[in-house]
Design a protein around this nucleic acid. Structure first.
Lengths: 196, 196
DNA sequence: AAGTTAACCTAACAAACGTTAGGTATGTCG
DNA sequence: CGACATACCTAACGTTTGTTAGGTTAACTT
């Protein structure tokens, strides 16, 4: 493979994602992370300056990926209702099946230092804005009643994010079914009462 | 006052709630907790067996209070739509303004040991069941389309819980407005399409 | 007054932690 | 061949942590 150059660093990030997801950032220690990555504790500092930097790169990579992936997904100019469905499905499936990093991005914000926090928040806001734009398009084209687009965007994201805390692959509902239900709930919820 | 007897223990729990909410359970240390409670580090062990027990009592007290408070609130037999409104308002306002403990109950589940975890989960399920019952009542009395009541209950709870992560007292929306919007979103979302 | 208990303090222990310093092997390049 | 950088190891450092042991004080009880 040609990715043998950056591979160890990638392995560390991958294992850090799994470890942080399992135990949380603070409860995780670098010696175990190193062991999982197949190296010795101190060797981590050849690739990263600090534990904090591992967390930051993890979250930064993930947020960047989420924003760009979702952007291209919405680029095909569909109608807002279909876009909302795609939004929910992307968010939920990415949160659950996607890289473990996603889960972390929501939970570990408080453990970022001031500078890193601002950078991640900026990207998280960009992600949220994609939701808001679909809602605004829907209020123009579909007559959605969007009193506060930020409020609804956050509700949609939070509904979706929360799925990861209870979803089980062998449970009664597939990710497709869950996201479809949630999208439908939102679509109907946004229509004015007694509309056709 | 007559509450001087149990008061120091109550102070500790109160300060622990604030501290854990600020920094998280693991990142909080007992010396700072003790300082905030006005005693010395080691003295905590006169009131509690361990740090873990502080977390557990915190969460247990809160969950118990939430279940009983919400139960009595729903006891006045209103129609399901009004009950759903009350549900959302209670959940959001309790999460935000209520004791800081509430916030913790969602975030620190993973830091409970096995026994304590089961106890808290049981009460959390009882809380969720209150939501489910309102949804089931609504599907009988209001024609709500509730395909999976657990799914919707979780969505409602997660929407509400998430508010705490961005709500600001001096922001543009009051808690009443937020919960009203969310309740309305759910009510409409649950009605069949094109219904009267 | 004597005994007992609750509530606290002080000081320390042992473990775990992030981090660092110094060394070794391997490969690359002039 | 020699210089050098990369990728790692080993071993330790200093700090912080939860926890414990032993002592002190004040308030009840008998």
């Amino acid at each position: 493979m040609a990715d043998d150059k950056a591979s160890r660093k990638q392995i560390i990030l991958k294992e850090a994602a799994r470890l942080f997801r399992e135990k949380g950032y603070i409860a995780s220690n670098l010696r175990e992370l190193a062991k999982r990555a197949g190296i010795q504790g101190g060797s981590l500092y050849h690739h990263f300056d600090s534990k904090q930097e591992i967390l930051f790169q993890l979250m930064d990579n993930t947020m960047t990926d989420m924003v760009t992936s979702l952007s291209t997904l919405l680029a095909g100019n569909l109608d807002p209702e279909e876009q909302l469905r795609q939004l929910m499905h992307f968010h939920i499936s990415y949160t659950i099946c996607g890289p473990d990093e996603t889960y972390i991005t929501d939970d570990e914000l408080r453990n970022l230092n001031a500078d890193n926090y601002l950078q991640i928040i900026a990207k998280r806001d960009a992600y949220q804005k994609l939701f808001e734009e679909v809602l605004l398009a829907g209020s123009r084209q579909q007559g959605w009643l969007v009193v506060d687009h930020k409020l609804i965007a956050r509700a949609a994201i939070q509904m979706g994010t929360g799925v990861a805390s209870w979803y089980q692959p062998d449970g009664p509902m597939s990710i497709e079914q869950i996201s479809a239900h949630y999208a439908e709930l939102l679509c109907k919820g946004l229509l004015p009462r007694n509309s056709a």
